[in-house]
Design a protein around this nucleic acid. Structure first.
Lengths: 326, 326
DNA sequence: TCAAAAGTGTTATCCTTACACCCATGT
DNA sequence: ACATGGGTGTAAGGATAACACTTTTGA
């Protein structure tokens, strides 16, 4: 018997800011008939060992092809290889290939050219409604998630403790970086729609589409793309603190408020204005350019610029996230 | 024309403490004749998509088979897929397969069963002699590396600045986490023996063995294993600060000095005793157990234990690294 | 009694947090 | 003038870094 083929796929999580909000690039795949299918996914492409010298080059190329723009910052996230998760292009070549997908995080500057059809910028709140705490604790946590998780935990001490720590229940503190663990908990608890789909598929049943969906659990995505997205968001949030990475999302010049709004949009928490500014100043990562931003209601704000050479000297320096409220 | 096969390989960087020193598990491969070949490598095994449900299970299995012991903590590091790097098992199946290797970091407790022949614990100073600053700035940096890097940099401002920042030249501060960047710089500068080997291979020449080697550049390893090792060491050093991960390397009970020595061995820097202890206490991650360590020269030390449940509540809490000298 | 390692006290300084307040512009 | 957002001062508390010192054992 011959060993089954392995395919390598590349998945890209591309973040950018649009109108001050953090967005992800998603693709609405079309069935062969031309009709759009229900679920969105991440830009995804096969890795061709013949044509591609490195993963990163291959990724940049197919993202450019699918979305018509160039990525800036790119970093490898994780390689997903579990059996049992749904693999979108597994039967592309005719045989039943095992797909290993290498996930990448990409950051794009705010201003971007027009998109292709079927490639859209999606607010990530659609996929993780519980991750945005900028306007305070999201209601869905207490109204939907907490009861559902409690029911799942039952009398298991371990499950209960995990749920409480991850979703800030019973006075536990919110940790914005643990995006992946939260999603995995919801998956494990069977609350993520993907869990039911994968179970059905494993049992050999036809894929069940559009069962009644509770929006509080987030929109599902194709394959394990929501897991890859969660990995990317968690990684990016963690990196904000110790890499000057937020500037990859901003324009050449920006106001301090725009910088703060960008940090807030990505991290999902509200920041304390004065303390944030002081902390930014101390890092020496930005400098004022003596001009002010074009008209807006209120006092005009000074424009700043990222000091790339200062950052190169100390690449393990990010911005602190002074929380506004507890 | 048919697409060439892809093989997935798994590489393991397994760290443990032996006699207070940080060691890596390395394998001395044997040529088919039975004679040992020159270079060591990491434990490496092919991933069989048929037999293995997940990468991690496959990794644990083949490490157990090659080394006769079980891993504790395991985490994925990075997936290496560049063409041009040497791939050790590429011709196993007869054809010229492209090998993609998924690197893993594993941590093993100090006490371990006997090894197989050809599997040895190696001090990582052998591979990175410039990474151990516990006894002060390593001499090789100024005697060998600095001049060699300077010659390579020539009048290039960028190269010079990178070399100075990474190797703490001209008063720049040492950053113990940037292990990979330092190795990549040496590789790029052609100072790592692997660079010459890979160039020769790319040019179609027979592998050159045992050219005159400067020990200050570190012992080379098979394939790109030294790069994987550098990735692992850098990742582990970074993680010490924000995950209670050092305890994976210690016994059930340990003295505070042993804890400090472990942190020092991994991070490669000397720590300030009192400030380290105060910082450890503040975290609440350890508790005294009221007993003292068995006899040793000097005053007996109290034994401590890792408080696993305290760590579970705040998994993003590591130990600080208060430096002893600047 | 002395070497060796464990363990304690104390201070200056810096960073973080949390207040409350003033400034410049468009309408 | 006033709403709107930009920008500043200051003080308490905690963390860090840098000192030097005492304690308890085995040889």
């Amino acid at each position: 018997m011959t060993s089954p083929a392995i395919m390598i796929g590349l998945s890209a999580v591309v973040f950018a800011l649009r109108e001050g909000e953090a967005r992800v690039l998603t693709v609405r795949p079309r069935a062969s008939s031309g009709a759009p299918v229900a679920l969105e996914g991440l830009p995804f492409g096969p890795f061709d060992p013949e044509g591609h010298r490195t993963f990163e080059l291959a990724l940049r190329e197919f993202v450019a092809r699918q979305t018509r723009f160039q990525l800036g910052y790119v970093e490898q996230l994780y390689t997903f290889g579990d059996k049992g998760r749904d693999a979108p292009l597994a039967d592309l070549g005719g045989g039943a290939a095992r797909v290993i997908s290498v996930g990448y995080l990409g950051l794009a500057p705010a201003a971007e050219a027009a998109q292709e059809r079927d490639v859209v910028w999606s607010d990530f709140g659609r996929f993780f409604p519980w991750e945005d705490w900028r306007a305070g604790r999201p209601g869905v946590i207490d109204t939907v998630l907490a009861p559902a998780l409690e029911a799942w935990a039952g009398r298991s001490r371990g499950r209960g403790a995990r749920a409480r720590a991850l979703f800030a229940l019973d006075g536990a503190l919110w940790n914005e970086e643990r995006v992946l663990e939260r999603f995995e908990l919801l998956y494990e608890a069977g609350l993520a729609p993907e869990a039911a789909r994968d179970r059905a598929r494993a049992a050999g049943a036809a894929p069940v589409e559009a069962t009644l969906r509770e929006p509080a659990f987030g929109e599902p995505m194709v394959s394990d793309h929501r897991r890859i997205l969660a990995t990317a968001l968690g990684r990016l949030r963690g990196k904000l603190r110790y890499r000057p990475i937020i500037f990859e999302l901003l324009d050449e010049t920006f106001t301090l408020s725009a910088l703060q709004r960008a940090m807030e949009a990505v991290s999902g928490i509200a920041l304390h204005k004065q303390n944030f500014r002081r902390a930014v100043e101390r890092t020496g990562l930005v400098e004022g350019i003596g001009r002010t931003a074009p008209s807006a209601p209120g006092r005009p704000a000074e424009l700043f610029r990222f000091r790339r050479h200062a950052a190169a000297a100390r690449p393990s320096l990010g911005l602190s996230l002074p929380r506004l409220r507890d």
